[in-house]
């Protein structure tokens, strides 16, 4: 069975080998390895996507071995979230309960906030948050944006959406 795995590797030598080790042990056949060096995360790690031919029953073992090797397993074996969108929030993002804002997306079941960075220039000054949301499909991305719009209106936040999100 062909499975995909999204990992985050630290930007130091030898990491890829560490990630490959558990796959070798279960005799997985690696179909592709894509290194997203250009999409370095705010944590300084590098996203890598593996496509591996392997037995699904061995997935948990591989995951725990990867984690034991210090590798972040973002997603493995699921193909649920396929669409992504970037949104910026400007205003009193933290004071208006950022946890709740994120939860409104996460609790949908069809979308989740997968990346978030916050810049707070000073107390009482508006802060800015970058949110990367992924969802199960295009429709769900639009629904997530609608939720954020409503939350933004309620919490007096400026919601800045990307132009490509809504095709005309």
């Amino acid at each position: 069975m062909r499975l995909s795995m999204d990992l985050e590797l630290q930007d130091i030598p030898g990491q890829l080998l560490l990630a490959l080790q558990p796959l070798k042990e279960i005799k997985g056949n690696i179909i592709s390895v894509v290194h997203h060096r250009d999409r370095k995360t705010p944590r300084g790690t590098i996203p890598v996507r593996f496509i591996v031919e392997m037995d699904r029953s061995k997935l948990e073992r591989v995951k725990s071995e990867l984690q034991a090797n210090g590798i972040v397993v973002v997603r493995a074996g699921e193909e649920r979230f396929i669409e992504e969108v970037t949104v910026l929030l400007v205003g009193h993002v933290l004071d208006s309960d950022l946890g709740d804002t994120v939860n409104q997306i996460d609790s949908t079941g069809f979308a989740e906030v997968m990346d978030l960075s916050l810049v707070m220039p000073g107390i009482d000054e508006p802060s800015s948050a970058y949110l990367r949301i992924r969802a199960t499909g295009k429709e769900e991305i639009l629904k997530s944006l609608a939720i954020l719009r409503a939350v933004g209106a309620q919490k007096k936040l400026l919601v800045i959406e990307p132009i490509e999100a809504e095709a005309i």
């Binding site: 910026l88 400007v90 810049v119 508006p126 800015s128 970058y130 809504e166 005309i168």
Partner: peptide
């Protein structure tokens, strides 16, 4: 309401912020 921080955050992720008018929306 746009702040320089918002522009910097956007730029880091490969975006500019522009005031966009849209029709027929």
């Amino acid at each position: 309401e746009i702040t320089p921080e918002a522009l910097i955050l956007a730029h880091k992720r490969g975006y500019a912020i522009k005031l966009i008018g849209e029709v027929p929306a």
